[in-house]
Design a protein around this nucleic acid. Structure first.
Lengths: 328, 328
DNA sequence: TTGTACGCGTTATCAT
DNA sequence: ATGATAACGCGTACAA
């Protein structure tokens, strides 16, 4: 290649990385040679010296999983993770950074750690399903740039992007109360995730500490089962806050299968404002979470940390909003 | 590292890649040193010499797209692509190969080509939305191992994995006829995709060439609109074959919104057997496509091609099956 | 069986 | 502004 242009490799490199001061004539000659040769730099060689891979990992960590197959299926089919992936991919593209999606559970954390240590990626976007997940700590100990989707139980000096979960739950409770519901209940996610515990706590703080709750798992089937249990134990409930739209879709079905009308008999408020909210009948009144924007922010923060290693960690908290539709 | 174990770097390399003949004593010593040091080989340096990156790309190519945001969102939210990603990820994991998901349209094919040429990945899983997509040809010209999800219009000596689309459509038509439907219609996908045109043709071959059809786009909203159009023009139809479950979910809604009962007034058969089939009410009778298995097969073929460059291309065709549920 | 030494293709430093 | 040349960290002939 250098030969083709009649210059040294160093000059070629300078042209490609448009470094300062290359004579216009030489530059053009090199670019012509590049075009005609179809030359592209070898990334391995480049990475070896720059210590950059121009790609980052999106690690989705779950504490345990039943089996490989259904775990992967759930991850890649869940609208929430889909939105995260879409948001991150979109934000990374202008930086010419690619995304490697790495689902993991505690059984193969070491694999992930090894992957990261090998230098495959320049940084990590870390989505944890439990606030006690050890992965964030391990990643931080590695010294590799990372951005979390929520602060772990043991706070870490690592940037993270999150939603004001409590505000979201409060908006839901207040809306149900304002529309006249008197017997409120909720279906929450797992309590070891902030998105589970905080939404539950804040809902109860606004709806009354005695408000019945069933802990579920953020799946549609889980939401349906939880709603049935709730209706068994509290037949009189007239307002239901469900901590994710996917669970709300299941809950809606349960309520309707028992012959109760939504929202007249039971008003239902979901959480997320993801596609299931529009697929339900009636469509879901829900707490909107700008997942794509949040993922994009994570990506941008990560890029910033990679470009400027000393950069101070920061946390960015997004505000949820109430989206009024037909279910409440 | 070599120093830590008191041996040469070459020996360390041999232990790590468990090459032949390393003295047991030395081997143990090296492994201890590795464990205590926490040493991991640098992938860039390794790739530079082995010319392997141990990762492959999953390229999802669409001809054109309205805007970046909704494109990414659709890709990462569509249950079909989710299943593909899950299947490929699962099959690749045992090989220690990672997956980079690369959505693209014709506007940035050159970006993808450049990405591939740079040697970021060892091979490509290529999902094209149009059989006239030039990408498969370009990738093949590059000489980089690839596996396609369907044969392009201009056949290429490249392995591909597909479903027997025609058989699927025929099963659907035969089932509708067998259950007594007399006025059949169909909602198809875009005609420049085999999954669109072949399902339509085969359905008409079995149901009668005059069976009304509306061409849609494999989205839920598209399916709903198509069903409305179909019911406007053919109020008497009593059997509907919809070429994807996602569209079928929308179509079901349209049929029911017009006060017609499923399956009594209109029987509906979907295609895919993905999660929407179970979320509908009534649940969808559908043509099952083992997407995860097919994606896994693609991944395994790709790995085989990477390991054995001269390997002959082959095509693997999966058979669809009818899954009986409530909608037909 | 083990060590020595070279090459992989770039970027970066240092002369010029 | 440009060209030698030294790393970068590994695998692997080849020699011992």
């Amino acid at each position: 290649m250098a030969a083709a242009a009649g210059v040294s490799r160093a000059t070629v490199s300078r042209v490609i990385n448009n470094a300062v001061s290359v004579a216009p004539g030489i530059r053009d000659a090199v670019q012509r040679a590049i075009a005609s040769t179809g030359y592209v730099p070898n990334v391995a060689a480049r990475s070896l010296v720059t210590r950059r891979s121009n790609s980052v990992a999106l690690v989705i960590s779950e504490p345990d999983r039943p089996d490989d197959h259904s775990f992967l299926n759930r991850i890649f089919t869940d609208p929430y993770f889909g939105r995260v992936t879409a948001g991150a991919t979109g934000a990374l593209r202008p930086h010419d950074v690619h995304l490697v999606v790495v689902p993991t559970d505690s059984a193969d954390h070491h694999q992930v750690i090894r992957y990261l240590r090998q230098g495959h990626v320049d940084g990590v976007l870390l989505i944890c399903s439990s606030e006690h997940d050890p992965l964030p700590g391990q990643v931080h100990a590695l010294g590799i740039p990372a951005v979390l989707s929520s602060q772990p139980a043991a706070p870490l000096p690592v940037s993270h992007v999150d939603l004001d979960q409590r505000l979201g739950a409060r908006l839901a409770a207040e809306h149900l109360i304002a529309r006249g519901c008197r017997r409120l209940a909720t279906i929450s996610g797992p309590l070891d995730i902030p998105a589970g515990s905080e939404r539950l706590e804040a809902f109860r703080a606004a709806a009354g500490a005695g408000a019945p709750a069933v802990i579920s798992d953020f799946t549609r089937a889980g939401g349906e089962a939880a709603a049935h249990r709730l209706l068994d134990d509290h037949p009189g409930l007239d307002g239901l806050f469900v901590a994710s739209d996917l669970m709300a879709e299941g809950a809606l079905r349960a309520v309707q299968d028992r012959g109760r009308r939504v929202p007249d008999d039971v008003a239902v408020v979901g959480f997320d404002d993801s596609s299931p909210a529009l697929e339900c009948r009636p469509q879901l009144t829900t707490i909107r979470q700008p997942v794509e924007e949040m993922a994009a922010e994570m990506a941008q923060l990560l890029v910033a940390h990679i470009d400027e290693p000393g950069r101070a960690a920061r946390s960015v908290i997004f505000q949820p909003t109430l989206v009024l539709r037909a279910s409440a």
